[in-house]
């Protein structure tokens, strides 16, 4: 004769047993991942030395506040332009033809060096300019700049 029962006596697992089981589980994981754990400790130590750890802890604990502040700032009209610029700059960087630029840059560098080395002083007259056009090096530069301006106008 078995009567209907609804009581359940839960098994009381002593706190010490639970602690022991958890420790064993952790110990196994540590032992299986020894190298990663040691590197992790090294990383933590570096973060701690530089006080970055404290900062990160505080930031994570206050992440909602921090995020709200950042978002409030980012969304202010005065920041819209800079934020957009940063992204746009990246886009510009992506569009530049670096090989062609290299060509320009090399020449620019050479020109800067020449200019710095030059000891010329005094004024340049119109006539001097016209005369200078006859100098093949100056003429090549001027032609290139004219081409540049034409190209820019086309784009």
């Amino acid at each position: 004769m078995a009567e209907k029962l609804s009581n359940v006596k839960r098994m009381e697992v002593p706190a010490e047993t639970i602690r022991q089981r958890n420790l064993e589980e952790v110990a196994t994981a540590v032992s299986e991942n020894k190298e990663a754990i040691l590197k992790g400790i090294d990383l933590l130590e570096s973060l701690n030395q530089s006080e970055t750890l404290d900062m990160l802890t505080a930031l994570v604990k206050h992440r909602e506040d921090a995020l709200a502040n950042v978002m409030r700032e980012i969304n202010k009209p005065e920041y819209a332009a800079p934020v957009e610029n940063v992204t746009k700059l990246f886009q510009i960087a992506g569009k530049l033809d670096v090989e062609e630029l290299q060509y320009f840059a090399d020449r620019m560098n050479y020109a800067v060096k020449e200019a710095a080395a030059s000891e010329a002083s005094g004024k340049t007259s119109y006539m001097d300019l016209l005369k200078a056009l006859k100098d093949p090096e100056i003429n090549r530069s001027i032609t290139m700049m004219l081409q540049f301006l034409r190209g820019m106008g086309k784009a």
């Binding site: 029962l5 009581n7 359940v8 006596k9």
Partner: peptide, 8 residues
């Protein structure tokens, strides 16, 4: 089942 209750 153990008497008046179930025991884990």
């Amino acid at each position: 089942r153990d008497g008046e209750s179930f025991v884990e």
